[in-house]
Simulated scan of single mutants.
Amino acid sequence: MHTDTVLAVRERLPRRVARRADAPLETVAPAALSTWLAYHGFPDLHSRSVNGETPLMRAARHGEDAVVEALLAFGARADALDDDGNHALWFACLRGGPATILRLIEAGSPIDHANDDDITCLMQAAASGRLDVLRMLLAQGASAELCAPDGRSALDMAADLGLQLLRAARQMDQMGQMHQTEEAGTQRIAATPDLV
């Protein structure tokens, strides 16, 4: 076998190792993952912290794709829910990158799951102004037809956010114009000779 091929196969081996339920994490997980878990206060990859957050949710929320990949490889559940009914994909849609989002979808995180407030990942992405994530979720099959309790769909939320941003931009422009007018007036007064 060619040396490059052997190295590539060896690099993939740890990802294929199945973790036995009774095996301690240290015997199968890389040291870096064990260190990450300990640093974040998780005894193992199936433990939970405040509000039922799992290590996978924490890594997704912070956009740590390499950690998400390792946690999934060692058996973290992509469909686990916290106390508010959110899963790792929902957190990834807030701050995670495209690789993390796609990885979680491929791992079985339900794309159209609605949390306890009946908000889906698509709605969260729209309300947060993450239009890149909104487009990605739609391309992955997320339903744009689902509505929040107030009757708005994700596309309605994106449009509302766009209008809010447009109004804010207009207000800033008007304030800038007022400031320029005030400065011009001040300069004219300063340039006028005293009439004493």
Rank of each mutant, 00 (worst) to 15 (best):
H62V: 00
R58G: 10
R95C: 06
A127Y: 05
D112V: 00
V28F: 04
A148F: 04
N86Q: 10
T54H: 02
V28I: 02
S47T: 11
A190V: 05
M178R: 08
A126L: 04
M123Y: 07
V9R: 09
L146I: 07
S109Q: 08
F42L: 04
D84C: 02
D65S: 03
N115D: 15
Q177S: 06
P43W: 05
G96W: 00
D22Q: 03
A99E: 15
Q124K: 09
H62K: 00
Q180C: 06
I189H: 14
F74N: 12
R103P: 10
E183T: 07
A76I: 01
P149G: 11
D112N: 07
T5W: 07
D194K: 00
W36A: 02
E145Q: 09
G41P: 09
A80Q: 10
A21I: 00
H62L: 00
T35K: 04
C121S: 15
A169W: 11
N86H: 05
D44C: 03
N51E: 12
E11T: 06
D117I: 00
T54L: 01
S153M: 02
T3M: 03
Q174K: 07
I189E: 15
L195M: 11
A158T: 05
A169F: 10
L33Y: 09
A38E: 05
L81A: 12
E53G: 13
T192R: 12
L138I: 05
A18H: 12
G63K: 00
A148N: 11
V28L: 03
D79P: 08
A168I: 03
D116C: 08
V9W: 15
L165P: 14
M175W: 09
A78K: 07
L7R: 15
N51R: 12
L102T: 15
A80E: 10
A190K: 10
A32L: 01
L122S: 12
L137V: 06
L195H: 14
L81I: 04
A78N: 08
L134H: 14
A168R: 14
